[in-house]
Design a protein around this nucleic acid. Sequence first.
DNA 1: TCGCTTGGTAAGGGTAATCCACAGAC
DNA 2: CGTCTGTGGATTACCCTTACCAAGCG
Length: 924
Amino acid sequence: MELPAKSKDKRRKSKTGKRQSEEEQHPIDQEEESARALLQMREGAIHDSRAPYYQDDLAAPQQLIAKSSSMRPLELTNGDDSVVRSSEKPRNHKTRRSKKKKRSDPFTFTGSEDGNDESERYPHIPSTPPGQVLHSSPPPYRPTISQSAHTLDDIPTDDEAVASYMQEYEKENESADPPAAPEHDIYEFSQQPPDASDQEDYGTAMHSTYKLPKQAYFPPKASAKPKKRKRGRVSTPDEVDDQEQPLANGEGRHTLNLDLGAINELFDDDNWANMFGACQDNDMPIDPELHSMSALPPSVDLSQLNNGDENAAQKKKRNSKQNGSAPPSKRRRVEEVSPASNGRVPFYSPYALDHDQEDLQDRVLPGFEDLQRQTSPELGSPFIEDIANRGLEYLSDRASPGQSAQRKKEVCASKANDSKKLRAVKELKSSPKTISKNGGQYTAAEAEKLDKFRDAYCDANSISIEKFNSHIQSTIRNNIEVKAIFDELHEVLPYRPRMSVQKFCRRRYHNFPARGTWTTEEDEMLKKAVAAKPNQWKAIGEMLDRMGEDCRDRYRNYLLNSENRNREAWTNEEVQSLCKAILECRQAVKDERRQVKIEKYGEDAPESDFDSDQEAQDMKLVNWQSVSDHMGGVRSRLQCRLKWLQLKEWEQKNLVQSAIDAKGFEGRKSIKTKNPWRMKRASKKVANMRTGDQYTLLQAILDSSAATEDNIPWKTIGDVEFQSTWNSADKKAAWTNLKLHVPGSDSMDYRATAKGLRKRILANGRDELDEKWDPEVHGDVSAKKPKRKRKAKEMQGDDEEEASGKKKRAAKRAKKLQDKSESNKSNEYVHDSDQEEVADSGDEPQDYNRHTALPRSDAAEANMDAGVEGASITDDNQDKEVYADDSEADSLFNEKGDNDGDQPMADRDVDKELASRVHLLQHA
DNA sequence: TCGCTTGGTAAGGGTAATCCACAGAC
DNA sequence: CGTCTGTGGATTACCCTTACCAAGCG
């Protein structure tokens, strides 16, 4: 399997806010989509007979519903009770809704107004025609404020515009709470909440070894009265009912209804590569959307396939989105909540002196920080610095109140001048860093603002930074001073949620002696602390004098299951396990929801629930820690998540590649480029490999369990001693040489080849398994050059000055011919470079190739055939085991490998073989 | 007393920085 | 053929938001 290398740019791009934004704006379940696509691919390529099964899945047959209607299938748990069940946690027994609001309308691909068109994610795939809706659910509510779509051009450049701009936002903010998006969670907003008995039973009824995410839609906790909604508009019963409407014509169905049998069947085949290879089949019987994604149109612009650039329209849309984040209602905040202004603060506020409202406008100019991130190298650093500096001007203004007005005029003028630059910025590729509507990563400028406030505050109140930090870390409620500090801090970044600022400051301003790298001792202490106070991260942090959050992260990302953690390349089995766990996790979510609905509506719960958008969105909620747990902890949550993203990307690239292949794209790069000289050098070196080394290599290759030959971790296979003798190139070259014994090995599974070779070694060179290259005895296999020089010097005699290069070459050729002759006599095959080594290495045994069971020596095969060594092998139990494991390899190997013929290599055309080998090496 | 707001804490999802191995260029 | 350097995968440390709950306030 040749998996396309991931573009770093694209990877980085995908890792940034863009991806987050895309996923939120395109809540189509990408994982679900990928899983389905993988399923489809396998079905199409391998298990065609399962097509009807898929149809059944899509149709959500009644029997499946009936099956799901029971408690969580026990077969999902595998009897593993060690995993923490979220349903056992009382605190989670409430409805969640926050993320659901953000993920709206997962299946509408109409070219979203927020700029996250599907074509942005898949530039090679045309957008769904406008208006084409692939589902029957109502379109999502889009708050008015998010429709503002302010672009950089919208940012005012003079005072009046600023005032107007802010008034506009104040107006929006002052309006009644915007109607909430139609909530999908019918339990929270239903006029008839589940009765208490249902809820009481819930805790024990919901059992899943998957720790569901918080957004896993637990039913409401038992309560005497329905939970009152805090903010926003309560969905009306009609709206709720709308969510329950069945999908028309089955369109928009994207849930994957798999039972475990299907999952197991899905991953029965260990040839993962076929799964991806099948991506090239454009005739997969998949639903319209997936089908459209898999079929590349003839007019695809290949130039777009390999770069992550967005077209201008997309950039514009995204810029609009970035600048459309809700600005604050600054004046109101200042007037209403500033403790400094109402005299409640018993201490001095650095802002209380001179910050007027106009000044505040400068401070919080919406989107201003974004401008700093939307610069590019094309603009040059001066502009960037200018923007960055201006972002902090309000502070300097405050320090010099007398100059404020003048400075402000200058600022406005500067802004006006910059408007042209801003337009230019808009056209350039913007940084993926954005501040989302709810905040996002804090910028350096924002941090600096807060730092300056801290410094000013400490100066004004004559307190130390440590004292300030202790105030920040204080969790005592109703501490007026602390509260006032946070009020002031919030005024520095009033467009950020107050709690967000508070949490950011708690992370930034602290007196903990250490953050960062953890020592082994600290890890041990952390383990003990966690054992003593599980899940009490604040207390644990106090014990270790570190931030509780850091302790939590260190534990979950590093220490948890560290004894089982595999940090090597993913094996085929692990990948299968990952996919299975993800699908099971989603199924668990679905079952959970189904059970909840049955509890509410009874067994007659509408089937349409399974088809709703919400259901599909739930499938996106994969708890990666649970996935990791179900893999036995051999991979961390981050490893699982990253691998899944990688698999999806590979899958997507394969789809692209298939289209490229279909068009005969000549520019396609060769599957693998080698460094010929490096491999040639390694090839020389591995000529000294003994039978034991070869056997070790083959065993190490098989032990690697790499999914494909390309995935073999050449550097790390073998034990330490083996690695010290043979580097990665050596091992790869040796493997390439060994494969030459198996005609047609290029089209075979590498494992079958390796097993066949291993068997042949056992049969042919069993007594030589202990023979390994010992650098101390045989010399350094790689240190040949000095010897060669020494020999050449000796050959030339004392009169070095007369030894011309011509004579040297002649002597070398003569020696070479002589060696070749000797080599032929010994019936051993050695290519020219090998002969060179042999000839030059006086301390090496001249018959070293006789120590290899697989020197491409047909004579050896002849010996084996004659029963010289192979006869007694079958008596060995160990070998029986090997043979039992290798039955398939045997058949493949013997069928092809035995056709080498019995003619000794000495009688063959060595040059021809050499040329063939070089060709193979260079094109391997 | 009650409804609402605010704030603390844990949990979950996510990413930038960094390391490391590999491979191509010179 | 040794060295430099770019690239991509994987890990680590850190970040931010959300959910839940409890205290406080009017």
